Simulated assay, not measured.
Amino acid sequence: MIDIKGITKSFGSLQVLKGIDLHIDKGEVVSIVGPSGAGKTTLLQIMGTLDKPDSGAISVDGVDVMRLSSNKLSDFRNQHIGFVFQFHQLLPEFTALENIMIPAYIGGKGTAEAKKRALELLDFMGLADRANHKPNELSGGEKQRVAVARALVNNPAVVFADEPSGSLDSKNKAELHQLFFDLRDKFGQTFVIVTHDEHLASITDRTIHIVDGQIKL
């Protein structure tokens, strides 16, 4: 599913990633942990094609993403990759349903198809009755579940999540963590999650430890 080899990344004189080799299988729920500044988010952004490494190779869902042009890379990201961030990043002027539909529109889907998929996901999330509510009318847990639904609307092969439960209380954290496994079981996605949450890391299929820009075995 994901193969990265020899990934390095520096910002000025600071080398953040120092030769990362990693393979993640289809359908795995993997956590990436480590101290602040270890390179976790940088690695996640490179795997998610939001940033480019200085050197190394990356294959996602069988595609050598380093060889794609900028436009083709954007299309690939829209169709094959989903993202969940710590602070949901929902657009405040749109309803929950509309927020979920946006990536589908970007991917060229028609309104009927996008709406059907978005409503299916809202129902799975237990949010069918919140479809027409705007973000300021939703709780923190509801907003994050809408963000997860948005990440899934194009049925991506992999979902990257950066501290997805970092802003939630313990009850909503537990519900969100369980949701990742429920979604994997229903839709077959791979999940790669950067987290400081020890409980989430403990229940994932595999935990990858990064220290000083390297994977600690």
Rank of each mutant, 00 (worst) to 15 (best):
V158T: 09
S13C: 06
Q45N: 15
T111A: 12
I102V: 13
D169I: 10
L90F: 10
T95C: 08
I102N: 08
V63S: 02
A161W: 10
D64Y: 11
F187Y: 11
N71E: 13
I215D: 10
M101Q: 07
F94M: 04
I210Y: 02
A131S: 09
I106K: 00
S59C: 14
R117W: 04
T111V: 13
Q178C: 07
D64V: 12
R184I: 03
T41S: 15
N154P: 14
K52T: 14
F187E: 02
G37C: 09
E113P: 01
S10V: 05
Q178T: 14
G19R: 03
P103Y: 00
V153I: 11
R130V: 08
R150D: 03
R206I: 08
Q79S: 15
F191D: 01
L17K: 03
G12A: 11
I81R: 02
G110T: 04
K5G: 09
P92M: 04
I32Y: 04
Q214L: 14
K18L: 06
I7L: 12
S170F: 12
Q45A: 12
D185P: 01
G82N: 01
V84F: 00
L14W: 09
G110M: 08
L43G: 01
G48K: 01
H23W: 07
A114E: 00
L91A: 11
Q178E: 15
I58N: 01
L119S: 13
D25T: 07
M1Y: 09
L217Y: 09
M66V: 14
D21A: 12
K9Q: 13
K5F: 06
A104I: 09
Q89R: 14
R145F: 00
F85K: 03
T195N: 00
R117H: 07
H177M: 15
P103I: 02
K109V: 05
S31E: 00
T49D: 09
N78M: 14
P164D: 14
N99D: 04
F124P: 09
R145I: 00
A112V: 11
